[in-house]
Amino acid sequence: MPVAAMTIELRIEHAQSLKDRRQVVRSLKEKLGYGFNISVAELDEAVTWRSATIGIAAISGSRDYLTGQMQQVEAAVNRIANDLGAIVADAWWDFLEDA
């Protein structure tokens, strides 16, 4: 069964504290989790409050379905991050080996 994994690197220029950073990350995770049938997690430790790395995973019986879903998720991430005052510095995804 194919598994897709996406990594998103965010810049949160307006963050003045760890609390500001957490608010953006938490909001992004919640909105993605509610909108798509995916797993979302923060991957890095809060080394700096102006950046964050988010990991997303999805599984399906169809690679074509996952391709479309990852494209939709990437578009949603850009839109949501922009609404939250963050910038997607980089985003990439790929299929993990079929188990």
Results as ranks from 00 to 15, higher is better:
Pro2Met: 06
Val47His: 15
Trp93Cys: 09
Gly61Gln: 10
Thr48Gln: 13
Leu10Met: 02
Ala46Phe: 10
Thr67Phe: 06
Val24Tyr: 00
Ile12Thr: 07
Ala15Thr: 04
Lys31Trp: 12
Thr48Ile: 13
Phe36Asn: 05
His14Ser: 12
Ala41Gln: 06
Arg11Phe: 07
Arg26Ile: 13
Gln71Pro: 10
Ser17Asn: 05
Ile80Ser: 08
Leu96Ser: 13
Leu10Asp: 11
Met1Thr: 10
Asp98Arg: 14
Ala89Gly: 03
Ser60Ile: 00
Asn37Asp: 11
Val88Thr: 12
Ile56Val: 13
Leu66Ala: 08
Gly35Ile: 02
Ile80Trp: 05
Gly85Glu: 03
Gln16Leu: 15
Val24Ala: 07
Gly68Val: 02
Asp64Thr: 10
Gln71Thr: 09
Ser60Gln: 01
Asp20Glu: 06
Leu43Phe: 03
Val73Phe: 04
Ala4Phe: 03
Lys19Val: 10
Ile80Val: 12
His14Phe: 11
Asp98Met: 08
Arg79Ala: 08
Asp90Gln: 11
Thr7Leu: 14
Leu66Arg: 04
Ala75Gln: 14
Gly55Phe: 06
Tyr65Val: 07
Asp90Ser: 12
Lys29Trp: 09
Pro2His: 06
Leu28Ala: 09
Ala52Ile: 07
Ala57Cys: 09
Met70Leu: 05
Glu13Cys: 11
Glu42Asp: 14
Ser60Asp: 11
Gln23Val: 14
Ser51Gln: 12
Leu28Ile: 05
Asp44Ala: 05
Ala99Met: 11
Arg79Thr: 10
Thr53Ile: 12
Ile38Thr: 02
Glu13Trp: 07
Ile38Ala: 02
Arg79Asp: 13
Ile8Glu: 09
Ala52Val: 02
Asn82Asp: 04
Glu9Ser: 14
Ala81Ile: 03
Ile38Pro: 10
Ile56Gly: 02
Glu13Leu: 13
Phe36Met: 02
Ile59Gly: 14
Asp44Pro: 08
Leu32Tyr: 00
Ala57Glu: 04
Ser17Lys: 03
Val40His: 01
Ala99Thr: 12
Lys29Arg: 14
Val24Glu: 05
Gln72Ala: 15
Asp94Pro: 05
Glu30Ile: 08
Trp92Met: 15
Gln71Gly: 05
Ala76Cys: 07
Asp98Tyr: 05
Ala41Tyr: 00
Ala4Val: 09
Asp20His: 03
Val88Trp: 00
Lys19Arg: 14
Trp93Ile: 12
Ala5Ile: 11
Val73Leu: 09
Ser17Gln: 06
Glu30Asn: 10
Lys29Leu: 10
Gln69Ile: 09
Trp93Met: 14
Gly85Ala: 04
Val40Cys: 00
Ala86Gly: 03
Val3Gln: 05
Ser17Trp: 03
Phe36Leu: 03
Val25Cys: 06
Ser60Cys: 08
Thr48Arg: 15
Ile38Trp: 01
Gly85Ser: 05
Met1Gly: 08
Val47Ile: 15
Gln69His: 04
Val88Cys: 04
Pro2Gln: 01
Asp64Arg: 05
Thr7Arg: 13
Asp20Leu: 06
Val77Leu: 00
Ala91Trp: 00
Val77Met: 05
Ile12Ala: 04
Glu13Ala: 15
Ile87Ser: 12
Gln23Asn: 10
Thr53Asn: 11
Gln71Ile: 04
Ala4His: 00
Ala4Asn: 02
Tyr65Gln: 13
Trp49Asp: 11
Glu9Leu: 13
